[in-house]
Simulated assay, not measured.
Amino acid sequence: MTAPPPHPPPGVPHEERLARAALTRITDPGDTVIGRALQDRGPQATLRAARDATPLPGAGPQRTESYARRAARTDPHADLDTAHRTGARFICPGDPEWPRQLDDLGAQRPYGLWVRGAPSLRLWALRSVALVGARTCTDYGAHMAARLAAGLADAGWIVVSGAAYGVDGVAHRTTLRAGGATIGVVASGVDSPYPRGNADLIADIAAHGLLLGELPPGAHPTRSRFILRNRVIAALTRGTVVVEARYRSGSLITARRATALGRITMGVPGPCTSGLSEGVHELLRGDAALVTDAAEIIELVGEIGADLAPERRGPVLPHDHLPPAAARVLEAVPGRGDATDEDIADAAGATTADTLGRLHELQALGFVERSGGRWKLVRTAREAPPDRTG
């Protein structure tokens, strides 16, 4: 694969890009002190304040000192060069490729994103769905993740997940095998695959899709960074689907953040006896929509009135095609035993003459038979009588 240019197409001045790249090294993602400073002062002034240990609003002495200490060791030119050597680029708010839905995060908006992969992140994110769930998923969870990912890929939707074990890995692998498009959002540098066991998968995502993260090259994940990463997944996509999650699962954080951002939140139901279904069922008792296949997901996140899921119904039975009058007569034939013309006419609310004509129709079609002047259902029909419960 041909490496992308060291910097994205013109959109953000180079000095601003350098400042934002430096901030990804100086502080962790989602730092609202830095986020508010970026809104009020801009990237370069915010970086100068951090380097000079000038207190920013909301930052105490320890945080101010931490900014200055990290800033003294930061070299954004080197980080951008390292990213380029690994086939990555750094995009910022204001770039043509920037997904503007991330702006909904307000003061927690990423300072910028380190991205590997040739496609445009902005265009791919416009038609994307997040599939997230338990890292130690059951066979059922893996099956459902694969089913949903394959269906979304076939329909041309981009599958977004966190490149972790379990549901994430299944969603990415299935999408790639189906020839679909997938985005992996990581909590480390895009050149430092984590978890290590998914190194080959992460490389495949970068080669055939998009891999992105907020941390600079060489950075390693922490628990808090995983949690902060989830807000990007929630904001980037049209909706989030949770496939298996315990009550304290990070996937629930993603789903709740998606709801708070006005995105569609969905859950796949599971066995009530499974601890891995507890969190999903809790979501379903709230604002989340229940989904069981890709068509139902697309109906919720797609174009109103155009991406409708097919109507759900049971199998079509032979008597479903009968005219209404004939169907009423068939329903009037007893499920057990037999009856006279008059008895059936009374039950159907029709005349005897009309009922007799319908009974002969039904006899020709194989639904009923006549013996000794009385009518009864034929054996196959009696074994599976018409549903009279609805």
Rank of each mutant, 00 (worst) to 15 (best):
A19E: 12
Q108D: 14
R109Y: 01
T351Y: 06
D104R: 12
P5Q: 10
P324Y: 11
V190K: 04
D346W: 05
A327C: 01
V185G: 03
D103C: 01
R89W: 11
R70S: 14
V129W: 07
R20T: 06
P193E: 10
R312M: 09
H360S: 11
G262Q: 02
S277K: 05
F90C: 07
I297Q: 09
D341G: 12
P269I: 09
Y111V: 13
A347G: 02
C272T: 15
R25Y: 09
A130M: 06
E303M: 06
G197L: 08
S371N: 10
T2D: 07
R51L: 07
G335W: 00
A206M: 08
E361V: 11
T355I: 07
A206V: 08
V368I: 12
A37W: 05
S192D: 03
L330D: 08
G117Q: 00
G180T: 00
A306F: 11
E16D: 15
W124Q: 13
G42K: 12
R17V: 15
V243K: 04
R388S: 04
Q108F: 00
T138N: 02
G372T: 07
L228C: 01
L23P: 04
V242G: 06
D191E: 12
L317Y: 13
G270S: 10
A245H: 03
A199D: 06
A118G: 00
A83K: 09
V368Q: 08
G372L: 11
E214R: 02
L252Q: 03
P217I: 08
E342A: 15
E331A: 14
L261N: 05
P221L: 12
R379A: 14
Y165Q: 09
A49E: 12
L330A: 07
R100H: 05
L362H: 10
V160L: 05
R127P: 01
H321Y: 14
L283F: 03
A345S: 10
T273L: 08
R69M: 02
A348C: 08
P216R: 04
V291R: 02
G35N: 05
R328A: 15
I34K: 06
R285Y: 01
H172W: 05
T222Y: 06
T292G: 09
P334R: 11
Q363T: 15
P324N: 13
A163Y: 00
V268D: 10
I205W: 02
R225A: 14
P334H: 10
D341M: 01
G133L: 10
D346N: 05
V115S: 01
L356T: 15
G117F: 00
A348M: 11
S66N: 03
E65F: 00
R122L: 11
G270H: 12
P93D: 13
G213H: 07
A381I: 11
G184R: 04
E342Y: 14
R85Y: 03
